[in-house]
Nucleic acid binder design. Structure first.
Lengths: 216, 216
DNA sequence: CCGTTCAGTTAGAGGCTATCACTAACGCTC
DNA sequence: GAGCGTTAGTGATAGCCTCTAACTGAACGG
């Protein structure tokens, strides 16, 4: 569908430059991590003077926050797309790993070391809950055959604020949470390089954890 | 036991100042994260000029590397101490959590976002294997009653370089690995604040994961 | 077509890392 | 205890960085 672009030329130009800045930011990020992200260097690459970028982002933090939001949105989009294509938990796990491996620094932007005082903006919590919803849907649809009762279930049944109005039973809540934490555990250590030199294949460990999640 | 300090006065002074620098570094780290760690600020706090610190650490990276090594050693020490006191897997898990909560930024120094090019120094891999040994000991000593065979075990039986000469059976290797990844998954997300506002108690989730590890 | 808006400029303050030449104190040796 | 080499700490400086401020020129919109 083709829609008339109601934005003024200035707005369109502005959006385009913002996007270009973020593009450069992503490549810098992938190359040297968030720490090394430099507005000055980006400006130089784009052939303009340093302070020019402050027309587009109030400061370095705002640019990074924007990248974080885009990363969240990217993950939520891939998840939602897979879910709409009928993905089960295993497929979602695989999609998560692919997404993480495609750009490790993007993963760390979302799930890496936080700055002590940092408060996530409202938007990201909304996107997080979108991701959670996909996960809860999958966990609810796909109940494992024989589920051993977990001592966590009563607690989750009582404190299920994060699940909103989702009709998932406590066991599904638990499985969604452990899906998140266990896969993040493997991915995070793998991407950080903690498995290098150990000899085993991280993919196999990931697959085994995925299987345990589906089966239990 | 009191040993004669064979170091020269200069060496002793040097070690003392190095320690003092690291002390200030730790407080800065806990307050604002590794990113904000500033040699200049530390020097000012200690009442000396910025460049003076370069007598003690070649550069900022070397100081941080030193902190990382100390963090590793601290974790290894607490683990070893608990193990010598007859700790089982559950105790080790509890010790890990206490260690992480005591100083989240220290945890992230070890297990947080890595700098893309960074190669861990030889020392840390040695300390890591020390930690792994304690873990493998515990997993070997404490075999769960009915262990469902995991598809991961054959792979680990074949690729067990990281376990060195440790006599742990494949299932123990797997349990040590999953101990690490699962608890790290929960801890990392908790410390990063990803659970805040969700309503449930991270400690309960951690306890449930610990229990699952011991029982399975 | 002309006034307004806004992108981009240079200059500069203040932070940082890191190097260099220098000084002064310290400790080892005789 | 005197002298001398070693070394801790200094200020100056270069070169990054973020971010502010004043200015300029071009593009847009009525």
């Amino acid at each position: 569908m083709i829609e008339a672009d109601t934005r003024t030329p200035r707005e369109r130009y502005r959006a385009q430059v913002r996007e270009e800045i973020k593009q450069h930011a992503w490549t810098q990020l992938a190359a040297a991590g968030a720490y090394a992200l430099s507005l000055n260097a980006i400006a130089k690459q784009m052939g303009m003077s340093g302070p020019a970028l402050y027309r587009y982002f109030a400061n370095r933090d705002e640019l990074i926050t924007e990248l974080v939001k885009d990363a969240y949105r990217s993950l939520a989009d891939t998840f939602r797309a897979r879910a709409e294509a009928g993905a089960d938990l295993g497929d979602l796990a695989h999609a998560l790993r692919q997404w993480a491996l495609a750009d490790p620094q993007r993963y760390f932007l979302v799930y890496g070391t936080p700055v002590p005082g940092y408060q996530a903006p409202e938007d990201t919590t909304r996107i997080t809950s979108e991701i959670m919803t996909v996960l809860l849907d999958a966990c609810t649809a796909e109940q494992p055959p024989a589920t051993a009762p977990s001592p966590l279930d009563p607690h989750l049944a009582e404190r299920r604020a994060w699940a909103g109005q989702h009709p998932a039973p406590p066991s599904a809540l638990r499985r969604a949470l452990t899906f998140w934490t266990r896969l993040h555990g493997v991915l995070s250590l793998e991407l950080a390089g903690h498995f290098t030199g150990m000899g085993f294949d991280p993919a196999q460990l990931y697959a085994a954890e995925t299987e345990a999640l589906a089966g239990r």
